[in-house]
Nucleic acid binder design. Structure first.
Length: 928
RNA sequence: GCGGAUGUGGCGUAAUUGGUAGCCGCGCUAGACUUAGGAUCUAGUGCCGUGAGGCGUGGGGGUUCGAGUCCCUUCAUCCGCACCA
């Protein structure tokens, strides 16, 4: 018998639970460390081998930090609201809470088997009223706040109201949906309803008519990051644009802070870059164009005011308000037809048919602010309504979209930027625009001859002095749409009086999700909550019928873990001041533009309002790579039920068919299992290779059911144990890299653990540990390992630490080392990786407390000092032989020894070496 | 189109950051012990070559005594963003 992982792992999992080993409390005598995994949504499919990758990494890091003397907060919980449970409820009538509970228990069961050091006492679930009470409370805070552009902070709406009462909008610079202007008298004479309507324009959580992504199939609105290429990310259903009155969060107000503060985060450059793109800051100018024979003034945004002399027409988005104002009667019909036609095109078509140029003339002309020339105003769907002002000044010579448009409609193209080396050329010969950000201005009046950068400044200065333009910064980041026409989510703590929304007071929370009879919209198209009885306040005012989206509950959850049972606050000041924020956050890249933006925003609002101590939630972020599947194939001979082995398949015409990887070992098909796998294969025949085996082909693909390449961690744990699973996942390769899972390699790690076990045991599996003094060699093997493993963990290079452990155990095996002085420290440093076997060995060594409470051993540098170095001796840069010399040997001595070595003669061939390079402790290179 | 990442044995990978390319493991080959081997142990295993030796980190070029690592160029794959003015 050797190591019995099954019994041992169960034993210690029970022990940890009973002893509450992983429970943590505030302990001001120790430094804190907060390690968090991204909030999982427990789907019905359960975990596959790729899911725990990040959890294992964070668990190793947590355990390591604990051994290093930190008080480590390492919690886990569930993002329990979500579409799949509700879709299932719609189909079966089963309450989504039940489905969720089942999935969640299954998830927990799987997690428990892996031996994580989570403090389950702190578990939270987003669908728990004690938790979502605080999600609702945060919403109320946003409802009652506005963003002051002057201070760049959220402030109480009361400040704004007070200002309206005394000065109207005169001194207001606040983030809003629409710029408003009124006096104090005007404000004071408005009705309650009118005032409320105005306040909505400023609230951080506000109700407004907006173009939204409507998914008819899911019956709900989706956020921008929940839509990809015109389809819903969940389910892949078509999404259309629709104008609806929706709750939104004024995320755009925080665009600059979200961008600036990225610099202080330890996140990968890749993910910071994705966020920068998503925020999409562009710097330029707003320019006002008069419209000839009209009072209308067209405002446009441009990043290239230096090209203003090249403007030969203007373009409006079809949805733009300007369209109604300036279209002439002669053009009215054509414009109406065009708008009609474009509104029929879906967003998807507009995106895919980028190259199709279309547009219509409004009949009006704008007046060029510098030349006074009249330039035609067109309408085209290549201009986006949602960005800038929905109108652009077209510079066809220097913008590819404007160029295509001008060519199509035969509009003039004027070159105004020139590369001094090439000179100007006739634009009628051009096949594309010249989109350079450098060069000199030509044909450009007051900025003629200036460099682009200087020209931009001069033009803006001129515009500002004439009060027809100003410097302006635009962001791509949109406000987040926050309503979902769904049941399974947090109810809004909002009721309506005289059609205006009012927030409940916090003492009324939680506003519990009511029971309903069916999880479908009502007959008149209201969201499912329209079915709830008495869904109104005590006074009879009706509650909001939408619920909150998935990101609501996951935006501030990290704070709740600090103080999960607090009934008076999301988190106490004391807990928040101690735990601060997340030191290490591990999760996938897929949350780059969703969760990781929303939670930063949400957290900043709470910070501004004084509810949290730091303004960023996640200090360091690591994105683990995906575990891909390794699929196996069999090859069916055409029109038959015969299957030909990989190396013979080229002799036949075959079809490649996925086969379940669980009935393939080392690419060899288990033929009997295959026959039983599916009825259609029961009578299959096989063309085997010479060795009588059926060899499968393989490919690396996404791990998914349809590819039959899903590997379940339970199966692996059953066969090899949790410690082996943990170590193999780490051994596979660098954490942040994607790599395929191939179960066949797991044997190496499994053997390693048994070799380790045998260091402690004799041939009969009896404990055999000696108390003798360790030798220098043994100490060296140990301390090399301690040093490397500690460095590797700090660098999240877990794959190399596993190799290091293997080398150490191989070395100790060769030395027949069974000395307690060595093995005890080895057990400690291994415990973050393989906690079960480490705990077992730790106790076998006579310790009574858990290895979790041990101290990470210090490196004894003195045993690592080498006396000799094995010099590689190169000739012309090619290594020919090695030579062991004391490290104290001086350079000229080394040269003498090397030159006199008989092996050198062969490479020198009697010539005189041109140069001899000696780097002590590194290399000898002789140039012949 | 723009931006980012990655290319090293049959496979997953390593390389003290410019200094012996291929550590560790899988797989494979041979052997030992065994009733047996999907157990264990030993030896070998980048490619070509009997050998001396030659070639070798996607390709080409450069810097250097010395390049997987630095520079230029090019190709391939993956991932973001994509009419954002």
């Amino acid at each position: 018998m050797d190591y019995n992982f099954k019994e041992t792992e169960q034993k210690w999992q029970d022990y940890w639970r009973e002893q509450k080993t992983y429970q943590v409390e505030i302990d001001k005598t120790k430094p804190k460390f907060y390690v968090l995994d991204m909030f999982p949504y427990p789907s019905g499919a359960g975990l596959h081998v790729g899911h725990p990758l990040g959890y294992i990494a964070s668990d190793i890091y947590s355990r390591y930090k604990r051994l290093k003397g930190f008080n480590v907060l390492h919690p886990m919980g569930y993002d329990a609201y979500g579409l799949p449970a509700e879709q299932y409820a719609i189909q079966t009538g089963q309450h989504p809470a039940i489905t969720t509970e089942v999935n969640l228990n299954r998830y927990r069961e799987q997690l428990d088997k892996i031996g994580f050091s989570f403090d389950w006492n702190r578990e939270i679930r987003t669908c728990d009223p004690d938790y979502y009470k605080w999600t609702q409370a945060a919403f109320i805070k946003m409802f009652n706040a506005f963003f002051n552009n002057k201070t760049q902070k959220a402030e109480s709406l009361d400040n704004l109201i007070a200002e309206f009462k005394t000065n109207g909008t005169a001194n207001i610079d606040a983030a809003c949906s629409e710029e408003l202007s009124f006096t104090a008298q005007e404000w004071n004479s408005k009705t309650e309803k009118e005032q409320q309507e105005i306040l909505l324009n400023y609230r951080l959580a506000f109700l407004a008519d907006t173009m939204v992504n409507w998914c008819p199939k899911l019956g709900t609105v989706l956020a921008n990051d929940e839509v990809k290429e015109g389809l819903s990310v969940r389910g892949g259903h078509p999404v259309v644009q629709k104008n609806m009155r929706q709750w939104s969060l004024r995320v755009s107000a925080y665009a600059q802070r979200l961008l600036t503060d990225l610099d202080k985060l330890e996140w990968s450059d890749a993910i910071k870059e994705i966020q920068r793109n998503w925020i999409g800051r562009s710097q330029g100018a707003e320019v006002t164009f008069d419209v000839a024979n009209s009072d209308v003034k067209l405002e446009v945004f441009t990043t290239r005011p230096d090209t203003i002399y090249g403007v030969s027409f203007m373009v409006l988005a079809p949805e733009s308000d300007y369209v109604k104002q300036i279209t002439t009667t002669e053009q009215q019909q054509a414009v109406n037809d065009y708008i009609e036609a474009t509104s029929k095109r879906t967003e998807r078509e507009r995106m895919t048919e980028v190259k199709r140029v279309s547009g219509v003339f409004t009949g009006s002309y704008a007046v060029h602010p510098f030349t006074g020339e009249q330039i035609p105003v067109w309408i085209s769907d290549y201009v986006l309504a949602g960005y800038g002002t929905g109108a652009v000044m077209a510079v066809p010579a220097h913008d590819s979209r404007d160029f295509a448009f001008a060519r199509h409609f035969n509009l003039p193209i004027v070159q105004v930027i020139v590369n001094p080396e090439h000179g100007a050329s006739d634009t009628s010969t051009w096949t594309e625009s010249y989109d350079s950000k450098e060069g000199k201005c030509i044909n450009s009046g007051i900025i003629d001859g200036l460099e682009v950068k200087d020209a931009i400044n001069k033009i803006i200065d001129n515009l500002e002095s004439r009060k027809i333009g100003q410097r302006k910064i635009n962001f791509r980041l949109r406000d987040a749409i926050f309503s979902r026409q769904r049941y399974w989510g947090e109810p809004f703590p909002i009721y309506f009086k005289d059609e205006m929304p009012y927030a409940l007071t916090e003492d009324k929370l939680p506003l519990q999700l009511p029971e309903i009879d069916k999880y479908l919209p009502t007959e008149d198209g209201q969201p499912p909550l329209g079915r709830a009885e008495n869904w109104c306040t005590e006074e009879g005012y009706p509650y909001e019928l939408s619920t909150m989206p998935g990101f609501a509950g996951s935006s501030a959850y990290y704070l709740r873990y600090m103080d999960p049972r607090n009934n008076d606050a999301l988190v106490s000041k004391e807990a928040n001041e101690y735990w601060e924020n997340v030191d290490l956050y591990i999760g996938g890249t897929e949350h780059a533009t969703g969760h990781l933006i929303y939670s930063r925003f949400w957290n900043k609002v709470l910070f501004d309002l004084g509810d949290t101590t730091l303004d960023e939630p996640f200090k360091k972020l690591i994105n683990q790579g995906m575990i891909q599947g390794r699929s196996n194939f069999v090859y069916r001979v055409k029109d038959s039920n015969k299957y030909v082995s990989l190396n013979l398949k080229d002799n036949y015409e075959t079809t490649e068919i996925h086969v379940d990887v669980n009935i393939v070992n080392n690419d060899i098909l288990d033929i009997e299992a295959f026959k039983k796998w599916m009825p259609e294969y029961a009578n299959a025949e096989f063309i085997l290779e010479d060795d009588g085996k059926y060899r499968c082909g393989y490919a690396v693909e996404k791990m998914s059911k349809s590819m039959f390449n899903v590997v379940n961690p339970d199966t692996i744990i059953e066969q090899y144990g949790a410690d082996t699973l943990r170590m193999y996942e780490m051994f596979l390769g660098p954490l942040e890299q994607s790599k395929p899972w191939d179960t066949k390699g797991i044997d190496g790690v499994y053997k390693f653990l048994r070799k380790l076990w045998r260091l402690f045991h004799d041939a009969d599996n009896n404990l055999s540990v000696s108390d003798d003094e360790p030798t220098k060699e043994e100490l060296k093997a140990l301390h090399k390992t301690i040093k490397k493993v500690a460095e590797d963990i700090e660098n999240f290079s877990f794959n190399t630490s596993i190799s290091t452990f293997m080398i150490c155990v191989n070395d100790l095996g060769k030395l027949n080392c069974n000395k307690r002085a060595i093995l005890q420290d080895l057990t400690i440093i291994l415990s973050p990786f393989a906690p079960h076997i480490a705990e077992e060995l730790w106790h076998l060594l006579g310790n009574n407390s858990s290895v979790v409470q041990a101290n990470f051993p210090a490196v004894d540098e003195s045993v690592l000092v080498e006396n000799n170095f094995n010099y590689p001796v190169s000739f012309n840069g090619k290594m020919r032989f090695t030579l062991e010399l004391p490290l104290t040997t001086p350079k000229d001595e080394i040269e003498k020894i090397v030159m006199s070595d008989e092996r050198s003669q062969k490479w020198i061939e009697g010539k005189t070496p041109k140069k001899v390079i000696i780097v002590p402790g590194k290399i000898v290179n002789i140039v012949v």
